[in-house]
Amino acid sequence: MYQNVFFLLILSIVTGLCLHVFSSRRRHGKGIYQMAILLLNGSLFTMTCLFLLTGIDLTFEHLVIAVVFIESFVAVYCLILIGVVHDSPTLAIVKALMAAGPKGLSDQELDSFIKAHPFVGARLEALQTTGDVVVREGVISLTTRSQWIVRILSVYTRLLRIDRERG
């Protein structure tokens, strides 16, 4: 029966998430993705040991399912974290409009908002940090890895007949 796996996963996820919130706040977001992987897997390991030590029945199949579940959860959680760490331009506009309240946002205020939110620079910096582009003497180039990424994406977009949008 999978009842034990279900409770093992609930306890591991709740513990892992609480520890991750605590660690992220203390470390001001430094290593936020690595800590998510470490703490959620660490929680599963600890809870599994506690279950086995207290005599709760867990088979090898149960453990495999639990590991697959936690790794899937880590992937989903990291995808959500990307949206938390990096502001989405659309949501930033929405937040600026919310902050403006009923009087709305004038074009002048919109200009100030744009100056305070260097999205393009931040994304280019992130691409350089992850090694997807290199900048040399004012020229920006793809790396071997990003060339492969773009090739794979092109197959997908051709399959779906999606036109490349700009801007």
Partner: peptide, 10 residues
């Protein structure tokens, strides 16, 4: 946005 920039460079 990052993917769009990569595709633009490509």
């Amino acid at each position: 946005l990052r993917i769009r920039m990569l595709r633009e460079i490509d």
